[in-house]
Amino acid sequence: MKGRQNDILAAAGFLLPNILGFLVFTAGPLVFSLAVSFSNWNLQRTIPFQWTGLDGYRELMRDNEFWLYFVNTIYLMLGMPIAIGGSLFLAVLLSQRLRGMVVYRTLFYLPTFTSGVALMILWKALYNPSFGPINAVIDWCLQGFGINDLLHAIGCGPLAAPQWLLETKNLLGLDVEQVGFVAAQRGIGAREALIIMGVWIAIGGNNMLLYLAALTNVPQELVEAAQIDGASRWRVFRHITWPQLAPTTFFIVVMSFIGSLQGGFEQARVMTNGGPAGTTTTLAYYIYTKAFQEYQIGYASAVAWILFAIIFVITLINWKFGQKELSY
């Protein structure tokens, strides 16, 4: 690309349409919300508007709820690596030139299509502690394979199938009322239920679609040449496909972090109401509640900008890590 060091004019032309809309509909409102985060703006006008500087941020640091929901948000991200890895695996399978691949792709994408209400009702039924098929299978395994008898023999209490959406317990034993761990809270509960559901929805969803698109850009001649040279499947993937996928992987990882840090809103709103006892409330849902149910726009903006800072730092880390690992 020598000799084309500065295309500033052309670049300006190409950027113009996007940057105009971007300035008006994104940048402007963002600056506005940043300004608002330094005020006590309340839609309900019980308190007169005033600039409060960093008060909102200070209050937030002391806000027990904020930290609880922050922990929830992070915890619910645990399914992310599985979802991304699974998407890649599926995409590789589906990028083979076999008959009926479009049918499979469509089928895998269906959960992303299907309306949230339908999915919610169905998953609630699946997670039903007494009659749901998931617990039926777990019970069958526990009884059938004599696992409980075995546990009894070695002096442990019997295992019971989890209560799923009704349960505040979680794998790490996070406490309900303050940030911390309690042994009594160790188990499987609503958060795990949401993680599993999330992986199921995401695995054949947008990430798979992106990987599929990226895989079609992998030059087929390279792959075939390598195969002729006798390279194993894994080596072909590792040394030809994977580097070609690097920019897409980078995109997916960055967007997944952003998406899941801002996520959990729909689930909380339609499926769990953020419960039981607030264990599935995420920061995005908290911001919504603060802004549109409690009218504290100022405070909600402060939470949003703290969330921004967290995402920003994570993206920077991704960037550094990505440069090394993804040769990007």
Binding site: A125, N128, P129, S130, F131, G132, Q163, L165, L166
Partner: peptide, 10 residues
């Protein structure tokens, strides 16, 4: 709540 969840499906 557990009974209620059970009713929905059963």
């Amino acid at each position: 709540p557990a009974d209620e969840a059970a009713m929905a499906t059963a």
